[in-house]
């Protein structure tokens, strides 16, 4: 899968409370959650989506609560990929489970600047920064997790396992 888009950049420790504040957790509707995505972090996030759909952030992205509403809000906003130096573990699981593509790369996360045009080849294991003429290598995820991603998420993966 090749994802070509521009980067929206954030810092370290982007927590699930700013990704989707708890006051909006009274809904499980994707469109409702998307409407409030990053509301307390960046008032201009929706404007930025007009030109960029790859979120790039620092360390510990998605820390805090276990709310799966967070990766759902990001995915439903139209974000195609999140690149970060590191991910909080529950967020990482949730994103893989619902099929939001993630890349963990300290080099890419530090080097990429807001507005950079990126071409991510997740299967091939590279991210090209077309703006800066750089290529970042991605470490492959464990086989099991790749299997979940290929199935299109954990529910589809389990359905296959259960023969449903």
């Amino acid at each position: 899968m090749i994802i070509k888009d521009k980067a929206i950049k954030y810092g370290n420790n982007v927590d699930t409370d700013v990704i989707i504040p708890a006051r909006h957790l009274t809904s499980t509707e994707e469109s409702e959650l998307a409407m409030h995505c990053f509301e307390d972090l960046d008032k201009d996030f929706k404007k930025k989506l007009a030109w960029g759909k790859i979120v790039v952030a620092g360390a510990n992205f998605g820390c805090g609560s276990s709310r799966e509403h967070a990766p759902i809000a990001i995915k439903a906003s139209g974000v195609r990929l999140v690149i970060a130096s590191s991910f909080a573990r529950i967020f990482f699981r949730n994103a893989i489970n619902i099929g939001l593509p993630l890349v963990q790369s300290e080099e890419a996360a530090q080097n990429i600047m807001q507005g950079d045009e990126l071409e991510a080849d997740l299967g091939g294991g590279t991210i090209k920064n077309l703006t800066r003429g750089k290529v970042y290598r991605i470490n492959p995820l464990p086989d099991f997790i790749q299997g979940v991603i290929k199935s299109g998420g954990y529910i589809e993966f389990i359905k296959k396992e259960l023969g449903k």
Partner: peptide, 14 residues
């Protein structure tokens, strides 16, 4: 440990 809702669903089923 904490997990999300999809993990909870799978664990409830299996």
């Amino acid at each position: 440990t904490g997990v999300g809702s999809t993990d909870l669903a799978v664990a409830m089923a299996t």
